[in-house]
Amino acid sequence: MKKILKNKFSDLFSKIDESYELFLPIEVDGKVNFDMWKQGDTVNVEKLKTNISPKSFIFPQSETYLKFKRDGKKLELDNVGGKKEEYVLFGVRHCDARSFKLLDNVFLSDPVDALYEERREKGTIVSMACFNPAQTCFCSSFGIEPQTTSKEVDVNTWDIGDSILWDPQTQRGENLTKQLKDILEDVTEQDESELNALQEATNDKLKELPLANLDPKKIKGELNDLFESEIWGELSQRCLGCGSCTYVCPTCHCYDISDFKGDTSGERFRCWDSCMFSDFTLMAHGNIRKTQKERFRQRFMHKLVYYPNNNEGAYACVGCGRCVEKCPVHLDIVKVIKKLGGE
């Protein structure tokens, strides 16, 4: 394990930027989101979580992957998209890091999504542990320990005050660490002692959170019984179908494919979509989910039942709490888990 003093952050970022595209939590007008770093940016690694999850770096909100051009009867196709440059995503919280693994289960399963795979292979993920979880956090309900070591990243880091502790986990992490050997220092026994104290204190904080006892494993029953449950009609009455929950969610992965066509050229692109929208999965004969109840049910049955049934019990939620914070009518996955669990 190594460390770097915070007053050397500018040197750290500049050194990484020499070999990689560097993306950091950048604060603009009071909002913190991941963006490409440049000298003079306001970096805020102390913000608990970014406004929008960093999944867009491996699954972009909009991505062109085919361009076409017509010349008479001749058609020219050009495959584009993907990620060509090596990059470092620095400051990812453990909940967001887990979401990458959940997305891997979708896009790297056969047939593999080549554009997604390329983005994953080009990236080095550096985490930032959490010591001050918010009242809306419930990552521990899904087995995530935000203050310890994440297995889903290339480098783990911990903010202990004046310095950041640095611990590479993979070969990519080791490669990055070697490039920073002139900046990183050895940790001391006092550093390790401070880290242990912070981790223990965080463990106590997690137990005191309002959602500490939320347990998705309490959801039991046959698939048909859960599907036909009366709670869907009850809860969905308040849902606006705005899609805010899906767009801030780090694990949602629905998308649409569209063509933009000019006179002689055009492009095919995909962009995020939401199962909460009335035109999602719209086909020639109409929509297979005609009511908000059906769309609401699809979202949460997928996260809490369908996905774990197909992925060795892993739920499609990481407890980041963004949907709890963003839903304009305070209708979120927490309420669904409690209702399906019998509360």
Rank of each mutant, 00 (worst) to 15 (best):
D17P: 02
E85V: 12
D78H: 13
L235R: 02
D182C: 07
E230N: 13
G321S: 03
S236I: 07
N79F: 10
K83F: 05
C137A: 09
K69C: 06
F269W: 11
V45A: 00
K335Y: 06
K151Y: 09
S19W: 12
D225P: 10
H253L: 05
E343M: 04
F90M: 00
W37A: 02
K67F: 08
Y306L: 15
I219R: 03
G123M: 15
F107K: 05
R238P: 01
T177L: 09
N132H: 10
C242A: 10
E208V: 09
L195K: 05
D215T: 12
K290Q: 10
N132C: 08
E343H: 09
S193Y: 02
D256N: 14
S150Q: 03
S274T: 13
A114Y: 05
S14G: 14
T124W: 01
K49A: 08
L66E: 04
K74Q: 10
C239L: 08
K8Y: 12
D154A: 06
K74G: 04
D104A: 11
M301L: 15
V112A: 04
E234L: 10
K73F: 14
L282P: 06
Y116V: 06
S109C: 06
L198H: 01
F100P: 02
C317G: 04
N196F: 04
K38V: 14
Q298D: 07
K178P: 06
E18H: 10
S10Q: 14
S141P: 11
K178Y: 07
S193M: 09
C245E: 00
I333L: 12
S10I: 14
G173M: 08
L240T: 12
P250A: 01
E174A: 09
L206S: 02
D332P: 08
P168M: 02
F59E: 00
Y65V: 07
K181H: 09
E312Q: 15
V43F: 01
I231M: 15
E189R: 04
K31F: 13
A314H: 11
R238Y: 06
E85N: 14
G243D: 03
I160T: 03
K293N: 09
L282E: 06
S258G: 05
S99D: 03
P168E: 01
L12M: 11
E267I: 11
V318S: 02
N309W: 15
K178S: 11
D110A: 13
L214C: 12
A134E: 04
G72I: 09
E230Q: 12
K218Q: 14
D191N: 09
F23H: 05
I333F: 03
D332K: 11
S229C: 07
F280A: 08
N156C: 12
A201K: 13
V126W: 00
G319S: 03
N156M: 07
D11Y: 13
K74C: 04
L240S: 07
C252I: 09
R322T: 08
E189Y: 07
G72L: 13
D215C: 15
S56W: 06
K220S: 14
C249M: 05
A201R: 07
I231T: 05
M1H: 14
D167Q: 13
K69L: 09
T246S: 11
R289K: 11
K122G: 03
K55Q: 04
D110Y: 15
T202N: 07
G30W: 08
